[in-house]
């Protein structure tokens, strides 16, 4: 089997776009079902009352990671053809910090902004307008920060390459971290629920 399909040109670019729509619909549907279109639920992650964001994100990451690992190990998918941007350490870390602040202030991240907007949340609409302005600001200042944008580049940024361990070992380690994370999340939630009930 030649996967990923589009890079192997098994499917046409038109069909690929059709799947883009389907994948988007499924993604939006599930995000909304999980409650991720609601700023109060999202912000619960940071007030430590509702850790849905963490649980959903980590379960998704672990699912994909395991899926890709086994498909690749059995020769069903060629991971080299999956596009993934290289690492640029400092821009990415700084971007993460700013995005985190924006997340806590807005109550949405960019993806969930779309979800919130689709369900009629006016604050999500405001956040969406903010996203557009923010992108425009970046475009406007790009000339000044271009050097910074391309700085601290790391091309081979896979866990197994950076830490010099086997692919399977890194999968194993991430699974262990996820399990510990899930248990911790349940403990934090049950504690916060206990305190609000008193």
């Amino acid at each position: 089997m030649n996967m990923p399909l589009a890079p192997y040109e098994v499917i046409s670019s038109g069909l690929n776009l059709f799947f883009a729509l389907i994948i988007g619909i499924a993604f939006g549907f599930i995000l909304e079902r999980g409650g991720l279109g609601n700023a109060k639920k999202l912000i619960g992650q940071f007030t430590l009352t509702d850790l849905t964001v963490f649980k959903v994100m980590f379960t998704a990451i672990v699912t994909v990671m395991i899926g890709l690992f086994f498909l690749s190990a059995f020769g069903l998918a060629n991971l080299e053809l999956i596009s993934n941007s290289d690492t640029y350490w400092i821009p990415q870390i700084l971007g993460g910090l700013i995005l985190g602040v924006g997340f806590a202030v807005a109550g949405y991240c960019p993806g969930t902004t779309i979800v919130g907007m689709a369900t009629g949340k006016l604050d999500a609409l405001a956040s969406f307008l903010g996203l557009i302005f923010g992108s425009l600001v970046f475009v406007a200042i790009f000339d000044w920060i271009e050097d910074f944008y391309w700085s601290t580049h790391l091309k081979n940024d896979h866990f197994s390459q950076v830490f010099a361990i086997e692919f399977g070992t890194s999968v194993f380690i991430v699974i262990c971290i996820a399990i510990l994370g899930f248990i911790t999340a349940e403990i934090i939630e049950s504690k916060s629920r206990g305190s609000t009930q008193k």
């Binding site: 086997e166 999968v171 699974i175 996820a178 248990i183």
Partner: peptide, 30 residues
């Protein structure tokens, strides 16, 4: 552990088995 919901226990069990399997496969390529 006993306080955890049944769903989470199942999830953890599946994850542990898949984790061990990936550890065993390691870096082998098809």
């Amino acid at each position: 552990i006993s306080k955890l919901s049944l769903q989470l226990k199942v999830v953890i069990l599946i994850l542990i088995s898949l984790g061990i399997a990936s550890f065993v496969i390691g870096g082998k390529k098809a």
